[in-house]
Write a protein that binds this DNA or RNA. Structure first.
Lengths: 219, 219
DNA sequence: GGTCCATCTCTTGTATACGTGATGCGAAGT
DNA sequence: ACTTCGCATCACGTATACAAGAGATGGACC
């Protein structure tokens, strides 16, 4: 996520831009990524553009068939469902690790986030709530104190982020989500790994269910 | 792993070669990957070499600092330990999913593998045993019937493969490993997700412990 | 009128050329 | 003698040029 380090190279620079545009939906799934057009747009040659695309391919955001160009990864609903499924387990793991490893300081910050989320929720500030929500999950990833797990979680989160946001529109979901977060925090603060894992897993599973529902409506 | 599809492009082709050499230890961690030398070696220009390296960077096998070239990722012991930790949980998840989802046919093949491993074990065929061992874990990944989880597991496995093999030299480990596999299969065949997860997790955790031991001896 | 084949174009894959930042060595100064 | 500054070299990042495959378009034949 916070990949906003100063890009040392042009390729890296435009990779971030394209990545961002994909997340924001400016570049929609299925959109063709023409090397020459992108090169022209950024005022560069095709070479750095190619490199940027190649990186995105490896991160899964873009698919590329040899000699046939690259397109923004079309969202495969079946795969999305599987991603949500794994996500719930991975986040569950994060929570379990976090319950065992978070420092008092970290726990305090986590609790503070829930309080902040409550305030934003009452103020009906959906954008704000979404931002804190995201920070909350991120804090749990960090709390796992396992870099590898963190990267997995963040990578999944990034891919699913657009669809996670959607579910906040679900009636009553914000309150439910808030309550679940509180439960997760309680379990982590109480250093109860099993419960933290179970609760977090369920929390994300609910999101997955809502997504599945959304999909079935779409189809 | 079985990335042995026909490479449609030269870049892809040499990526596979380099990747293989890293896994086999021909290219050891810390080895510098000079673009020009590699280009000369494969009879290509620097361009496809660069692309191959870039892919390896994104897969984590190679690290690259701007303007300073690429080196085979030096093994960070701390990170390795974390990878093993996550691996045990991820494989546990695979086993749990597999217990719920493997078809009778798949289960039969899994059982057959254990039988084969037993035979190879008695014949003291370490190489053979290692191969079946690997196939076994792969079969469990497949059994999860979740592409995303599979990819995660395989990616981790690939990174850790060299060190997983080492542990077979541990006294009595082969027999232990074999018994654990049998337990995992039993749980999967019995469609007992919780037990399958627990047993598989423990199985991999033992490997992690042996690795940690190995590390502490090295240091 | 439809289908099949040839060619044509357009974009990608690869090669080569160029500029620039980074490392290492040597000389000069303290 | 040690440190520091500057220069040279060398590899990397980027630009441009060339080759080759995939899809499109048109015509010819059935």
């Amino acid at each position: 996520m916070s990949d906003q380090k100063k890009p040392a190279t042009r390729a890296e620079e435009i990779r971030q831009v394209i990545e961002k545009e994909i997340f924001q939906g400016v570049l929609r799934p299925g959109t063709r990524l023409d090397e020459e057009s992108l090169a022209a747009r950024f005022g560069l040659s095709r070479t750095p553009v190619r490199e940027a695309i190649l990186q995105l391919v490896y991160s899964g955001l873009v698919v590329k068939k040899p000699r046939q160009g690259a397109v923004v990864a079309p969202l495969d609903l079946h795969r999305m469902v599987q991603m949500f499924e794994v996500m719930s387990d991975v986040e569950g793991l994060c929570a379990r690790y976090a319950a065992r490893r978070m420092s008092p300081d970290e726990k305090a910050r986590l609790s503070a986030m829930v309080a902040e989320a409550e305030a934003l929720c009452e103020a009906r500030d959906l954008d704000g709530y979404y931002a804190v929500n995201r920070a909350f999950h991120d804090a749990v990833y960090d709390g796992s104190h396992n870099e590898v797990l963190k990267e997995m979680a963040r990578s999944l989160f990034a891919r699913l982020a657009p669809y996670r946001r959607y579910q906040l529109n679900h009636p009553g979901r914000v309150d439910g989500s808030l309550a679940e977060h509180a439960e997760v925090v309680a379990a982590i603060v109480a250093a109860d790994p099993e419960r933290a894992q179970a609760v977090m897993r369920k929390h994300v599973t609910i999101q997955a269910d809502i997504f599945a529902e959304f999909v079935s409506i779409m189809a």
